[in-house]
């Protein structure tokens, strides 16, 4: 069974996984940079993390090495912890300015 999954992952060449995860990563980066709604930004951060997960899993199958798959679990865990804190901070901000627009954050500047 496990071998089946690995061979089926390997049907698609590595370059394609690489391109796909770069694409997803770029979409995430673009979202964080250009969108103003904080919820969307959080989603785009998740997209960045998940593109890395995809890449690690593909590499793991290609190297026949399970360690990277364990790493993926850690990434999921950390991403969950991070988004928990992020949402809490977001709620705090919403209470202060009654908005989730990042452009509201402009009181601190040089």
């Amino acid at each position: 069974m496990d071998q089946d999954i690995i061979t089926s992952i390997r049907v698609i060449p590595m370059e394609h996984y690489l391109m796909l995860s770069f694409l997803l990563f770029s979409i995430g980066v673009a979202g964080v940079v250009f969108r103003r709604n904080t919820i969307i930004i959080l989603m785009c951060l998740e997209l960045m993390f998940n593109s890395v997960n995809l890449l690690l899993t593909a590499f793991s199958a290609y190297h026949s090495d399970p360690r990277a798959q364990v790493f993926v679990f850690f990434i999921m865990l950390v991403a969950a912890a991070e988004v928990t804190v992020g949402l809490a901070i977001l709620v705090m901000m919403k209470r202060n300015v009654d908005s989730v627009d990042v452009n509201q954050l402009n009181r601190l500047k040089w």
Binding site: G86, I89, L90
Partner: peptide, 10 residues
Amino acid sequence: SGEAAFKYFL
């Protein structure tokens, strides 16, 4: 403080 936390987090 909230703004600092949010900027740091993002």
